[in-house]
Design a protein around this nucleic acid. Structure first.
Lengths: 233, 233
DNA sequence: AATTTCATGTAATTCGTTACATGATTCC
DNA sequence: GGAATCATGTAACGAATTACATGAAATT
């Protein structure tokens, strides 16, 4: 069976949906373009790709002609077409894969509000139905509000017994969560007022500049860990 | 050898240093008092405790293995069945354990600036030498600044190709990191001004006033609340 | 009396990393 | 021709979770 990672599977499917890629590039996109994801290692990625192929969500397209059974008629010639470099194994989403991804997109389990999961969901909001986006945002918010409740309670209970540093750490942690809640509030407000009803095409952006004041933070801790095989190094 | 979790080991040692406890309580402290820690499960905690005992850093104190262990005379031994009642096991730090913990406290490897590790270190700053605190805070800060650099680069590189949501996620992530940097700056400033408040000779007596932080951390506000139980699950 | 909370554990499983191998291509 | 980077994998291990199993104490 292939109860693979969930988040990795989801992200891979989502990225490949935009365009076919080989493993190496995929990993880079995972770490940079979707900055939220922690750096998955090849030891994780490649086996996952195999599983996805085995499930029929992906097919491999080898660029090399050495293989006699290239069954599927693919028009992608080994050279020329792809900007200068030629990859060994290009993964492409199958129809079933696409279907599976859509299904994952619309399925909102209570998993979807957890830190990493939420970030992954959010990263593909461009492909997500508005209704689902709402559910995810609101789910996340109430998850955080729960968390806040506990933190407040704990703080009240232990206030006297702790030293300044511990207290400060808790205070800071709580503030972070509060910020994320505010951020979510703004996003939800945006969705409601119908900011952009988008479709999957990456069109121009209505960016408000990066110095915007939409305080808060989703990706709290554990983002990227140092990685031996890290890019941009 | 037991290259156990590192952070769990560290936290357990640190908590037990303050006072002996049994496993169940330990876990609660891990989740609440030191709110930063993700909720370790019993499946993680108990085996870890065993390892620590095996290493000689802890000893188990069962209700008293001699004959009459009931502590305060109570309905003991009602279970006619032998084997003694299943007693609480209180763990106490041994001298070696204490020594080991001090060693961990003063050792600053590049691990120490990683997210979870850092939080654990910070939580025990009360027991930590000022000099070491400085190293950890500054190490953490430069780790984050590195991170920011990468994020900025990535953002600049991909700005055009991404949709609004992805961009927003990245923006938000960056802001979070920036915010933590500012926090660290304040803390570092506090440490600096807290040191040698009175008549500072660079050396002199190395009194460590672990409790009365003259520098003063940013104070926090009141949150009074009663509260029933809590448990992260 | 029944339920909840306290308390301790184990086995199987999931998720992911490190370290190791290998080779092709590009840049200097 | 040698280094760096691109590219793909595997085996061994690591850390932590879940689900299971047990039982005592306190509450209702």
């Amino acid at each position: 069976m292939s109860r693979r990672s969930g988040i990795l599977e989801f992200a891979v499917l989502g990225l490949l949906r935009e365009s076919p890629m080989h493993g190496y590039e995929l990993r880079k996109r995972l770490n940079t373009s979707l900055g939220i994801f922690r750096a998955f290692s090849y030891g994780t990625l490649y086996p996952c790709l195999k599983t996805l192929v085995a499930n029929g969500w992906l097919i491999e397209e080898t660029g090399g002609e050495a293989a006699p059974p290239p069954a599927s008629g693919r028009g992608v010639a080994s050279t020329s077409s792809l900007a200068g470099r030629r990859a060994k194994i290009v993964y492409r989403l199958t129809a079933e894969g696409k279907e599976h991804f859509e299904e994952l997109l619309s399925h909102t389990g209570p998993d979807a509000w957890e830190d990493e999961h939420f970030a992954a969901r959010f990263a593909f909001f461009g492909q997500t139905e508005r209704e689902v986006r709402m559910r995810v945002l609101e789910g996340r918010r109430s998850r955080l509000e729960e968390r806040l409740e506990k933190m407040r309670a704990s703080l009240a209970r232990t206030r006297e017994r702790l030293d300044d540093y511990t207290l400060e750490l808790q205070r800071h942690g709580m503030e972070s969560v509060e910020r994320e809640v505010r951020w979510l509030n703004e996003l939800i407000e945006s969705e409601r007022s119908g900011r952009d009803q988008r479709r999957s095409s990456p069109e121009g952006s209505t960016r408000h500049d990066t110095s915007g004041e939409t305080g808060g933070l989703p990706r709290n801790r554990d983002n990227t860990r140092p990685d031996p095989s890290d890019d941009t190094k």
